[in-house]
Design a protein around this nucleic acid. Sequence first.
DNA 1: TTGTACGCGTTATCAC
DNA 2: GTGATAACGCGTACAA
Lengths: 337, 337
Amino acid sequence: MDTITIKDIARALNLSTSTVSRALRDSYEINTETKRLVVEYAERLQYRPNPIALSLKENRSRVIGVVVPQIANLFFSQVINGIEAVAYNRGYHVSIFQSHESYERELATVQQVVARKADGLLISLSSNTCNVAYLRQLQEKKLPIVLFDRVSKDLEVPSVTADNFAGAFAATEHLIQTGRRRIAHVAIPATISIAQERLAGYRAALEQYGIPYEEKLVRHAGFGPNEVDPIVDDLLQQKPDAFFAASDRLAIGCLTALKKRNILIPRQIALIGFTNITVADLLDPPMTTVEQPALEIGQVAAGRLIDLIEGKQNAVTTDSLKIPTRLVIRASTKAGA
Amino acid sequence: MDTITIKDIARALNLSTSTVSRALRDSYEINTETKRLVVEYAERLQYRPNPIALSLKENRSRVIGVVVPQIANLFFSQVINGIEAVAYNRGYHVSIFQSHESYERELATVQQVVARKADGLLISLSSNTCNVAYLRQLQEKKLPIVLFDRVSKDLEVPSVTADNFAGAFAATEHLIQTGRRRIAHVAIPATISIAQERLAGYRAALEQYGIPYEEKLVRHAGFGPNEVDPIVDDLLQQKPDAFFAASDRLAIGCLTALKKRNILIPRQIALIGFTNITVADLLDPPMTTVEQPALEIGQVAAGRLIDLIEGKQNAVTTDSLKIPTRLVIRASTKAGA
DNA sequence: TTGTACGCGTTATCAC
DNA sequence: GTGATAACGCGTACAA
């Protein structure tokens, strides 16, 4: 992996490294002829400036670090696409990392990202992250940080999320309006910030329609492989007439569990998912969903972060942007459809 | 982002930077007491060595670059999980990048990865990449490279793929054995290496069962948003009794198209997908699939690359490892099920 | 218009 | 047992 450097060019052309450097950066003070010579030679040798040396010198890298709990999740991979689109246009490279829902890995990954002089950090917290002290420290050291989706109120940085409250409200309201009253809610782990908001939206809808909230109809499911099944069993004990699943994974888990038990959707049970799965309309019957604006979340978060990096915005603002969700009705929750 | 360096420690403790460096690296020649002092102080100030400086000095980074066409694809994200598991255990960080099916972005991304002194490159080629000269150059500069899934025979580097021939053979054979004879094949773009192998597997199965190969029953579909629909239309003109879809995306596209046209699966048409989608058994009827061993591909590829990096294997070997696929029968292709 | 010298953070080499 | 120095590749203040 022998790389060609500015020195090599200088030596070959009998110039000093500074002249070469300036010529390559098209400095006004360099003779046109010299410039041509240098640029031509550099071109021919495929010279590429060493970003590592630059990072060391300038203490920055034009790289944005992105840390998500998992990549094998359409929501997060779409967010990343949004991030990349914006970052690329504004001249930043994006490095992607996974925390695998582990606090320790998240910590280690973020430290690595920081040590490598990422100019900013976009992060969605792992479900096991309760302590964000390490992020606060970084923030105090002036590292630009923007949280998205899985955010934390203990951290005074900008955050970008879907409007989870409104989304959950719309989902629940839709179920109620189509005649359901005992709506079970399979929620994501309570440690995740947005779990609360989705729960709140669910409760608010019930309240608005005069339906009492029953704790027994709500269960949180973690990320274990076989967690959803027994939870659905338990919830079925409560004789629900609908399920509101709070994520892709849980929606699929519920569908599978209900199918195993030969429960007809939507005849016996209506199901609505807070998701991004593309196959919702392939199911029979198709599933109504609350679509998360993943791409837009990524775009907005990246834009916000880059503004922060480039000092275009006050760094101490703690705005939390909420991107609207979209209720996509696919007939499944229309009673008896 | 003020970071604490070895210099700071040296100054504070009235030592030289070299002493501090040695103390931190637990060098035998340093006084125990001095060591203790240094280590303690470093601990207290949360000193972290600067990997950028190390990379500059040592011309390596303990980072593996991974480039995939897209992340929003369960196959690739699972491969990445396999890669990470192995890399992490062997002390490497993994940086993930997308080429977005564009040759230009792939090229730019790889250059960036190389410029940042990644110790090795794991790459699955974009569908628009016909020219791998740039990779050959890197290989000649001794950069360890391992290809996976979308490989190239024009490149003499190790490659890891699913056994696409056997998988396609098994899928086609299954359709034949369940009574189908006019099997349409919706293939991935012909530029992608594995398209050929899947096609070959399909043809071999036909041949073995004495069914003539018909060109009109095979169509390649690109990545455009509305490409699959008209192709399915065309294929239906040929009165097929089965579809073999060569990827997740295409399987879903076929299902959607057939559903739109009110064609019953599997009564009128049997469908089999070469995929990794987790919802195959939620469909009604469930879809039989050829499962790709994504996780294992990632693990094997990463292991192979790290062996290369660490010189444990001859760098010029051009082994191409094929990981077995698995035919998962979910009743859909059983005629009349 | 061009060249010299320095510093970014680290470690290896050589000196004391 | 410890310190000074050079080197990795680059850009720039300063000198010529």
